[in-house]
Design a protein around this nucleic acid. Structure first.
Length: 511
RNA sequence: GCCCCCAUCGUCUAGAGGCCUAGGACGCCACCCUUUCAAGGUGGAGAUCACCGGUUCGAAUCCGGUUGGGGGUACCA
């Protein structure tokens, strides 16, 4: 039973609230995308809030990775934190939780004044012992409430002993908390399953996730919380807090999880999870966005190549799935190829350049081709790039000073070494002749074909020998275009070298 | 353990009681195209709709149970 996608009449405000404890995760990107699409589709507001209260694990480098990654994917926010000189955007600034501490302190003292929350002096060791005991007795772990009913005097004694007090929220007993999830339908959880009174503020005064998320969602007037299903069981805690603070909870929508191949929650251990890594390998943003949108959502039709505008136009929450989806890299690669082929040629040059530059720096190629040369290669490579990073794999041989040639590969299956030598020498002369006038694919092909015909060779065999001679490989873009891309001088030079290699190998076997 | 969620080809999915002899896509296999590799085209294999029971003239679709899987259960987010 699903409620209408948009409950109430208040303006739509959604958020992505990443925690900078790691690089931008595929799952975070997908959640961000769904929130973004939902906001854009309904002319709502999309907010980025940094949940950086875990100072031990968080870092600025991760924060930058997350922001940059979202930006690269085209997931832009209407309200968000100050970044690198730029001021925070939006009426609810700041958007970084560590800069919002006074808000949490204020909310906490209010709850404390109303006795909805109480100081807890339990030590971590005690809590651990409680948990272990519960486990041994096969009881669900739950806070025993040791500090729940101290008198003011009892508290004073502990404070005098300068015991650090965490703040715990009083969870009502045996109460059903229900909500209508836009994706799951009606969900009901008994408060007894919540593990007892939970901590809102650490002993050192720093606020915890369950607390900050609610304070901020209230203050930022979030209308819809669209997040991963891993938060479903936590939702009653949040609802209790919303009510304690005198607010109706927002509408919830819990997305299915993205899964490892073994169907567990996608994790770094078992999958590549960093968006940056996919980008670095040459998956392009259009493909990533298209793929992520289709993980757990569908148009309801059979269309699947969808750009951002199209996604915004068609996105809705009621076509979101309930079951988790395995991340399938092969399908991503296919989609990436689809989008690479759709790129404007000049745009493709721009996107290819950084990959070639990186490979030049890494020494995988000896020189960086000028833009004109990359542009000329576009028709040859665009159908052969599952990722942009594959460019050097495809045509790197054009930009190296020496290609390593395996003499065995120079001899096609139907040929022997002598034929190969003969064929390469004859082809060398044909190529040399053509080049004296002009060096065009259209001219090379018929002449080399007729050479093969005259000598009774299969054209494919001759072409393969030449291919290996000039590229060192058996799989390349079309041969004649490749020869032209190589240039007359270089093509002849490589033919001569290959002939030399073959001769040397032949005499070595002879002796 | 307890609580919650989920369940259609290997994978992503279409499917809102008769349109389903369960459709599409990725991957796989063949063939066509072809100088190799791709791309493209055509075709194929691949799902007793997890299982059992019910409701109904009729169920992949509704209900109940079972099984299986996942998530949550922190002074992490």
């Amino acid at each position: 039973m699903r409620s209408s996608p948009i409950a109430g009449t208040s303006p739509i405000r959604v958020r992505i609230a990443p925690s900078p404890t790691g690089p931008l995760h595929i799952g975070t990107a997908r959640t961000a995308l769904f929130n973004f699409l939902f906001a854009r589709h309904h002319q709502g507001t999309f907010i980025l809030r940094l949940e950086d209260t875990d100072q031990a694990r968080g870092s600025l480098a991760f924060e930058k990775d997350i922001l940059d990654g979202l930006h690269t994917l085209g997931i832009t926010w209407d309200e968000g934190p100050a970044v690198s000189g730029e001021e925070a955007r939006g009426p609810h600034a700041p958007y970084r939780q560590m800069e919002r501490l006074p808000l949490y302190a204020e909310a906490a003292s209010d709850l404390l004044a109303r006795d909805l929350v109480y100081p807890c002096y339990c030590l971590p060791d005690q809590l651990d012992a409680d948990r272990k005991l519960a486990e041994a007795e096969h009881r669900p772990p739950r806070y025993v409430g040791r500090c729940a009913n101290f008198t003011p005097e009892e508290r004073k004694v502990r404070e005098a002993a300068s015991l650090a007090a965490a703040l715990r929220f009083r969870v009502p007993e045996n109460t059903l908390v229900g909500f209508d999830d836009l994706i799951r339908g009606h969900v009901e959880i008994n408060t007894d399953a919540l593990g007892g009174d939970f901590v809102l503020v650490r002993g050192d005064g720093s606020p915890l996730y369950h607390f900050t998320v609610v304070v901020d969602d209230v203050e930022m007037e979030i209308s819809h919380v669209i997040r991963g299903e891993d938060h479903l069981s936590n939702t009653p805690k949040h609802i209790l807090l919303f009510r304690a603070m005198g607010h109706e909870p927002p509408v919830f929508a819990h997305l299915p999880l993205i899964l490892n191949p073994d169907r567990t929650k996608m994790s770094k251990r078992k999958s590549q999870t960093a968006v940056g890594d996919y980008l670095a390998q040459g998956f392009i943003r259009e493909a990533l966005v298209n793929y992520l949108a289709l993980l757990g959502w569908s148009t309801g039709s059979e269309d699947e190549i969808l750009g951002m505008d199209e996604l915004i136009r068609r996105f809705d929450l009621d076509h979101v799935h309930q079951a988790g989806a395995v991340f399938d890299r092969e399908r991503l690669e296919w989609l990436n190829g689809q989008w690479v082929r759709r790129l404007d040629p000049d745009e493709l040059v721009d996107r290819l350049r950084p990959f070639l530059e990186a490979d030049a720096v890494a020494g995988r190629i000896d020189r960086m081709p000028p833009d004109g040369q990359i542009r000329a290669l576009v028709p040859l490579v665009r159908e052969r790039l599952p990722t942009l990073g594959a460019i050097t794999d495809q045509v790197g041989f054009l930009f190296v000073d020496h290609v390593a040639i395996d003499p065995a590969m120079l001899v096609p299956k139907r040929w022997d070494a002598a034929t190969a030598l003969d064929g390469l020498a004859a082809a060398r002369e044909v190529i040399a002749d053509v080049g004296r006038v002009s060096f065009e694919a259209d001219e090379l092909e018929p002449l080399l074909r007729s050479l093969a015909e005259r000598r009774g060779w299969k054209a494919g065999d001759l072409f393969m020998a030449i291919r290996v001679a000039v590229t060192g490989r058996t799989a390349t873009p079309p041969l004649f275009d490749t020869l032209v891309a190589l240039g007359y001088e270089q093509a002849l030079h490589r033919m001569d070298r290959a002939i030399g290699v073959l001769r040397a190998a032949a005499s070595a076997t002879a002796t």
